[in-house]
Amino acid sequence: MDSGPDKLAIAIPWARGLLGLRNPVLAASGTFGYGVEYMPYGDLAKLGAFVTKGISLRPMPGNPLPRVAETPCGLLNSIGLQNCGVERFISEYLPCLPDKGVKVIANIYAHNLEEFAELAGILSAETKLAALEVNISCPNVEAGGLLFGQDPQSAGQVTAAVKKRSGTLPVIVKLTPNVTDISEIAKACADSGADMISCVNTLSAMAVDVRSRKPLLGKGIGGLSGAAIKPVALRCVWQVARAVSIPVIGIGGINTAEDILEFILVGAWAVQVGTANFSGPDMIFRLPTELASRMDELGIASLESFRGSLQM
């Protein structure tokens, strides 16, 4: 079996050990389905890992159409977390994935602490999972609708609630960039036991049509992703990596090997590729090899030595 470029292998430290990944290229939540959709286009085992579509306790029907709109260098979406619920994820999708070699990270989403804890409890029993990623870009219903991820205290509480039930799975907390001070949120999560931080989720955004005088998305406001947000994401990863000692996974606008290196340069251990998967479903499978050659070209000996080596 081709083990991929060896120098890309990483072992991300967390409270109970190391999360070993073949390479730092992960597929981002919501852009990679449940993995099975991409199996015709590449070997999932060639990726560092993939993150599932956000999973909630019960199935969710999602938002009104249109749910996507292309914007310059970007994509606006309001899918509304349509998903089949945790039960069907476990009974229908998880069994379709290969038993060995594929690292699956379950992305979870809920509206209150109890549901978050329950989801973590259910998924922690699944041996096919490598980690949990907690989407805290969701309204905290009990706290009047502010996003969990927009308030340090709520962010800390979700982290603690999930950690309590996550068993032997590392917990990655995924931050929203729609905050005044992302470091503060990251610290709250780290202090509450988060094993890793991933950032960023989409940027709150809007697009309108002057002819119809309507928003391009059925829901009006949506989340912006793609190349357009890369500078924002880099800034966030840079700030978070300096604020906390736990590993950070960079997300936002990654299309090329060079983009990946930019995130590693500002301190990321690994990255997630989202919107670029829509440009072509085979695209992400080429990135590890391209990353290795780009490192050679630039004379970067190892990811370890390059990580966080930004000169200010």
């Binding site: 959709e37 999602g62 159409l65 749910r67 994509l75 998967n277």
Partner: peptide, 15 residues
């Protein structure tokens, strides 16, 4: 002809 992103059933945009 709904608006699509992935075309392969992954993103749930064109439902």
């Amino acid at each position: 002809e709904n608006r699509m992103a992935c075309g392969i059933g992954a993103c749930q945009a064109c439902v």
